[in-house]
Amino acid sequence: MKYFRNLVKPYIIWSFLMIVVPLLLIVLYSVTTGGNSLVNIQFTLDNFGKIAEPIYLAVFIRSFKIGLITVLICFFMGYPLAYMIARFSEKVQSVLILVVTIPMWINMLLRTYAWISLLSDNGIINSFLVSLGFEPVTMMYTDFAVAVGLVCDFLPFMVIPIHTSLSKIDKSLIEAAYDLGANRVQTFFRVVFKLSLPGVINGVIMTFLLAISSFVIPKLLGGGQYMLIGNLIENQFISVGDWNFGSAISLLLAVVILFLIHLMKKMDPDETEEG
């Protein structure tokens, strides 16, 4: 194995240049002032203080709320779906998992535009409602539209890890539960669900992270005024030009996410086996 050790070196150099250096730059930007020039460095913590201002705090709260809603909907749709898929024969399962991932093959922008034409005031759904004699409903530029877009995009990230966990469950454990007197419902909650928890935790982390850091879907389906953390960061870099504040938000988000992952991992039975 020693022989191949040198093959890792290009990757280490590459990841240092492309991941570690930019990360350090973000840290540097977040604690300095002076636009995007690196010549004239002045350290400050004002960028972080700015986040506590009510307008920006509201963006954080709204993002977490939307993230949470997306995770909940993805979970309550994704778990039953994964459970049903896992009950089929292995061949059928792989086909069904493929079907679940098909939307991911289509460009995300295209999918989002498709939602616009479905949800807009004179879009397909509203035309249908009007033709049935109902009042048209405003769906675009609401929490609903954003949640629909996010759920549709991120559902596979919930379904796949849960399905993986479920399909790995040793059938004899389920039989053991039946054998010990548990009916189907008791067996599900006392055995199957607990054994699928690692998948659930992975799915929740993934969909939550994707949902709170997304910016294209909230922009297109939530409208220009609809600010989530992702949009705020994008704005700071592209429209406002305040790279320092943008970096501070990014850093804070990264810390919050790392903390959440740590918290979730603690709940994962597989990770705390030694305890």
């Binding site: 039989e175 054998d179 039975p269």
Partner: peptide, 20 residues
Amino acid sequence: LPPYKREVNTVFQKYALFPF
């Protein structure tokens, strides 16, 4: 009759203990 209504219990080949 489903297994959970029978007055028999099984010791499984690979024990099938609940790992959690």
